[in-house]
Design a protein around this nucleic acid. Structure first.
Lengths: 194, 194
DNA sequence: CCTCTTGTTGACCGGTCGGTCAAGTGCTCG
DNA sequence: CGAGCACTTGACCGACCGGTCAACAAGAGG
């Protein structure tokens, strides 16, 4: 759905996306009806379909926008840091901060990952995150900072560590990012041998 | 729902659970209707409600049963292995094998983790998996095999690595368990410095 | 101040869903 | 062989859902 939007229109669209994200996180995507979303904002149903062609498109847009935002945060944090391992560490910390500030999106993303309807968008998002990490890992291997192993496997392992610690300590819990970040980075660098 | 079941009844119940699991994995829990499940087996709708009080109870039962099965496989594989780190490695490999043989359950579990309706069951399952790993890690710390760190964080990190590699290489892909298991164990033991 | 586009309303529609139930069928065991 | 319980059928129900639309409001630009 492409439309000419005024300033007010763009705000309304964002408002719908944010509110929907909150409701999706609370009750789940399918159980949350379009009626729920518009009622929660006190507007008519037509408003929704002025900005989105379908509920499915809405979630796809939410996924795209959030991924874009997270990636921007990572890039801003990494800046021009030269050390590839430090780039990963910074990226990890930036991701933790982002999820702490956007708890809702964690379960939305996880849901979307299980649903064929959103597989295309989700896969694209996951590939870019993976690609970024792989790039840094390859740099680290070339620089002789870490042994020569399959960088894709390593990247997946790193993302797995981050995902679990994020869920437990930042989404379900409320631990300080620093502590979680330090633990994540330490495990990724040295494993159980700490 | 507790009922006296004959042999035939128990088979029917299992048949319903297996078929439902397959459909849930393919189309998702909410989009799969009870009518879909019974039609796919060529039986009437009443059959479903003879064995389960609701669709929700069915999924809860699927989650409980699959977790029980996975845990049995882990215990059988570990046997009386004395080395705590080796126990973890064996448990990891057993889990990988189980998920390779039960691909369907991966996305079902992941979906359930995002839905408040199934949070109680899912949380219990997760806690036992976490508890098992933590126990081995504490043993390893006491035995001086690894440095003294927060075992819960370490356990979460291990589970995160296993989860990601499982999804990529056993659920989406079709890699041999040995290769994936070796990579997972290696990363968990030494991190990127592997 | 008028016009044209953006934005909003909410009743309405066809379809589906989870769940019920009265009526039957077929084992099983005494 | 008959009684009673396990099991099955499938039409039916009320609720709700995603999506449409005709009519209307509002504000920007000329």
């Amino acid at each position: 759905m492409r439309r000419k939007l005024t300033q007010r229109g763009r705000q309304r669209r964002e408002q719908l996306m944010h509110r929907a994200a909150r409701l999706f996180a609370e009750r789940g995507y399918d159980p949350t009806s379009v009626a729920d979303i518009v009622e929660s904002l006190g507007v008519g149903k037509g408003v929704f379909y002025w900005y989105f062609t379908s509920k499915e498109e809405l979630l796809a847009e939410i996924l795209k926008a959030s991924n874009h935002d997270l990636r921007r945060r990572q890039e801003a944090a990494i800046g021009d840091e030269p050390d590839p391992l430090e780039r990963i560490a910074i990226g990890v910390r930036a991701s933790l901060e982002w999820f702490r500030d956007h708890r809702d999106y964690f379960s939305i993303i996880q849901f979307a990952a299980t649903d064929e309807r959103f597989a295309p968008v989700l896969r694209r998002n996951r590939e870019t995150a993976l690609g970024d990490t792989i790039r840094h890992l390859k740099d680290a291997i070339v620089a002789g900072r870490i042994p020569d192993q399959d960088p894709e496997m390593l990247a997946l392992a790193v993302l797995g560590v981050v995902e679990q610690l994020t869920r437990r300590y930042l989404v379900d819990g409320d631990e300080p990012v620093d502590r979680v970040g330090a633990a994540a980075v330490s495990f990724c660098l040295h494993g159980l041998g700490g």
